[in-house]
Design a protein around this nucleic acid. Sequence first.
DNA 1: AGGGCTGAGTTGGTTTTTCCAACTTATATC
DNA 2: GATATAAGTTGGAAAAACCAACTCAGCCCT
Lengths: 155, 155
Amino acid sequence: MPFKSLIEEPRCQIVRTLDIVGEKWSLLIIRNAFRGQTKFSEFRDQLGIPTDILTARLATLVENGIFEKQGYRDAGNRERSSYHLSEAGRALNIVMAAINQWGEQFNPSPWGSASTFLDERGKQKVSVAFVGESGTAVPQTKVSWAPGPASTVQW
Amino acid sequence: MPFKSLIEEPRCQIVRTLDIVGEKWSLLIIRNAFRGQTKFSEFRDQLGIPTDILTARLATLVENGIFEKQGYRDAGNRERSSYHLSEAGRALNIVMAAINQWGEQFNPSPWGSASTFLDERGKQKVSVAFVGESGTAVPQTKVSWAPGPASTVQW
DNA sequence: AGGGCTGAGTTGGTTTTTCCAACTTATATC
DNA sequence: GATATAAGTTGGAAAAACCAACTCAGCCCT
């Protein structure tokens, strides 16, 4: 974001993840990538993001393995760069869905929902939930957050 | 963040949610609140956040209903303010857990996990997953993101 | 009553980040 | 050779974050 200390990397996964995707515009670029956008000009035009910031964000997202940079060539044009979500980038779908779901519940838009998440067949909506080791759902209000093995006094 | 347009509120829940919790430090203040911190001085000392920024963030988080401001009085001291997660704030636990889980998988700390999420009894770890309408788990890689009813041409 | 202590800020000035508009670069077509 | 276009760079202005020093209110102590 960067909160990253020069002395020591952070242990907290929240901090570590925000260091990668927490800067302004990053999650929106990723959102647009989930919508199938891959070109610099698509991100620029759809988001209205300043182009120097877009350049910087794409670079750090590539550097951190969220995007893979590829070349593409439209008919009659020279080769240009495109940006594609990696496996790690695609795995952010559950983070995006959790954010989306929270917004629907606690800060709904007057127009209703702009996003849905669908299963493989596109047949049913899916939602984000906590599940226990056996795969059974655990109510969100019953889940508590505790220090893990890597936590120090200040975790 | 604010991406909020002056003309029209955004429809996208990602944008709407980032407008509330997407600024620098906001999610870390919320993380620390999940750790039981409630006082200005606790956030300041544990996070090392500039105090003017902390003031500003606490204000917008209260304004947006993430925190509830209360008074407290330590023995022999005058009354001061404390900040407590509201229901909406507590419901961010699944967003935090999703971020944490992504980090564990794709950007693990050399020291291991600093956070775990536990069920009601603290007996088992819980994780974040996609579930279908019937409550059955749907593999994350099989979930796709599609426009919802409120989506426009540019959703 | 006066002085010191403490938590919760506020303030002024500096640095960093973001924003914006104009410019550049490489190649493809005309 | 001239023109077009995607993907950037660059320089300067504006906004946000940072930092240290200060304020303010009430409590305790003498």
